[in-house]
Nucleic acid binder design. Structure first.
Length: 171
DNA sequence: CAGAAGATCGGG
DNA sequence: CCGATCTTCTGC
């Protein structure tokens, strides 16, 4: 299997990446020979400082600063005091954007994904091209991909909450 | 420095 | 529908 390069995340636009990640394989090496491989089945795109659903809309902060770097890095953050959200930084430096992994074949729901992968603060900024703990491998999935509005961002207003920037395989 | 809210989930 | 649970951001 081919590991997805950092360039893939830097050179493509976030919507293409979010959609393109569907069907690719998320690999998590827990060490001691324990490896989890599962295909990505649901993602969302968060794009730029104008996107009011994107954390970068508040400018660069201690939490979101990784999104302002070149793509190909992991952006994790704790939500509701208990769930680690797994995101991949996309696009070039100073173009803050990311793709959220909302579901893999193993389990559905971003909070569950973070729990299954045993994510924590130490994954912040992890390099997907060189990490020995988490990376993406090329693969495809034989299913139709559909786009819908993103979940849980009603606060972002009519324009942004209705963008069809969530990608999921048709069941 | 206090208070509110959050890219969620599971139980009732 | 609501509580869990705690970091981050905002406003005073």
């Amino acid at each position: 299997m081919n590991r997805i390069s950092k360039d893939y995340f830097i050179e493509n636009d976030t919507l293409s990446i979010a959609k393109g990640l569907i069907g690719k394989t998320l690999v998590r090496d827990f060490g001691k020979g324990e490896i989890l491989k599962s295909k990505i089945i649901e993602t969302e795109a968060y794009i730029g400082e104008q996107d009011l659903a994107c954390h970068a809309s508040k400018g660069k902060t201690e939490r979101n600063k990784i999104m302002f770097e070149d793509g190909g890095l992991v952006y994790v953050y704790l939500i509701y005091g208990m769930y680690w959200m797994l995101n991949f930084v996309t696009e070039k430096a100073d173009h803050p954007a990311a793709a959220l992994i909302r579901g893999i074949e193993e389990c559905s729901g971003p909070g569950r994904v973070g729990r299954l992968l045993k994510l924590d603060k130490s994954f912040y900024g992890e390099n997907l091209e060189t990490s020995n703990r988490i990376w993406i491998e090329d693969s495809i999935i034989q299913s139709k991909i559909i786009a819908t509005p993103r979940i849980g961002i009603d606060y972002s207003g009519e324009i942004w909450k209705n963008k069809p920037w969530r990608f999921v395989v048709e069941k």
